[in-house]
Design a protein around this nucleic acid. Structure first.
Lengths: 237, 237
DNA sequence: TAGTGGTCTAGACCACGTC
DNA sequence: ACGTGGTCTAGACCACTAA
């Protein structure tokens, strides 16, 4: 059964997305929502907190919850979203090809970034992404083999996250990311359609499971003109 | 008086930062914390939720709350942090100079981005930031004049956010941001020490107050080698 | 003054992990 | 079986906004 506060969130989020409640209007009051969903006020408030965090509403003490303008292009590179999930929300034609999928043993730098023992079996995966026929993204992944023993090129070309979450029942929980701009090296230029570009936007992420296991390390290189990051941020004092 | 859940958060966050509780260890259970802080469990849970959101802990059902590794370089460009606040946490020498502060009336594109009436009085502000003596960041701001009538070059060289929040009592609440890479234009090259770089990382933000007024629009251009963005993200399904 | 959201409480029951 | 976190409740009091 779905959790009550999640269900309330889903209903209200949908009403906002479909503009059944328009930007600038007030949501029904917490007391009204409590009645409408036949629940307690704290539960309604949990749903509203989620809406607020995700940029759907702004709460105003003494007034109510006002619905915010929705972004036209919801490209949540913030957060933790797989390429396939992103692709679905983009109109462009996307294509993934697996350059390499090989089984190795951790050593030196590999071992460092995955924080595992020397000799731990790992997957080394390289993929290239095309947008509208142009090779513009180059991903390198390191994964702990014991958590995804049955990985294949077919799975890697589709969605690793789907496989992990739906097939294996693993729970991807959080990630640390870093975004920087770096010079493209020879290999990058071989793999990608660089045109006259000399630099790449590099997103490095360490991905953790629910039990805090570091499971995946990814380096994702984007051609600068095809990189875009949007974010909704709340001020924390 | 500080809110109880905020106070609990502060205490626990400090204990984690100072490694009084080390990464990998478990926090005391919610029941223990409830006793220790002489409060109710829901209040403790609000504090823990904040810790979880900010990457301090990971909660594990049936086990407890495990303390996560802290980032060495906490550079929260995610979130909503002023340059002065950032600078404080960096070892480098930083310097801000005001290129221009002028009073204008909104028209055309200005008016567009601030979503205000034609002719609305606005501040147009341009600043340049030096890190270790090099001009590497170029900020252009548009602000609604009626909300910050007494803005001066001195204030702009220090911190606009301090002025707004502490002097004027305004509450900066949230922002929408976009990060892209663009070609530097002639003006950019004049203002910044570009070396051989041809491109800039451009961060565009729309900043809103608590009452959802769009108050500031900022375009911040960074020399690629001096741009770094780190993020802690939780997966939302 | 009435209605709104913000905080806090004491207690209940459930789901999960460990022993 | 026990302790952990996850959800939900019914009610209290406070702070703020608006009429």
């Amino acid at each position: 059964m779905e959790k009550k506060f999640q269900a309330i969130y889903d209903v209200l989020a949908k009403e906002i997305q479909t503009e059944k409640i328009r930007a600038g209007q007030l949501l029904p009051s917490e007391n009204e929502l409590t009645e409408r969903f036949a629940t307690s006020r704290e539960t309604v408030r949990k749903a509203l907190q989620l809406l607020s965090q995700n940029g759907y509403i702004q709460k105003l003490q003494g007034k109510g919850s006002i619905v915010l303008e929705q972004d036209k292009l919801p490209l949540p590179v913030s957060g933790l979203t797989s390429f396939k999930e992103l692709a679905r929300s983009m109109s462009q034609k996307v294509e993934t090809s697996v350059i390499e999928l090989s089984s190795k043993e951790a050593h030196g730098c590999n071992q460092q970034v995955l924080q595992c023992e020397e000799g731990t079996p790992i997957w080394e995966l390289q993929r290239m992404r095309k947008l509208d026929g142009e090779a513009v993204i180059y991903d390198k992944d390191l994964l702990l083999k014991k958590l995804a023993p049955g990985l294949t090129k077919e799975i890697a070309a589709d969605s690793i996250y789907d496989y992990l979450e739906q097939e294996l029942g693993l729970s991807i929980s959080y990630a640390r990311k870093e975004v920087v701009v770096e010079e493209a090296d020879a290999k990058d230029k071989e793999i990608l359609d660089m045109g006259s570009y000399q630099q790449l936007v590099v997103v490095r992420s360490a991905v953790y499971l629910e039990d805090t296991t570091l499971f995946q390390y990814t380096e994702s290189k984007h051609r600068p003109d095809k990189f875009r990051f949007v974010d909704f941020a709340r001020r924390t004092k």
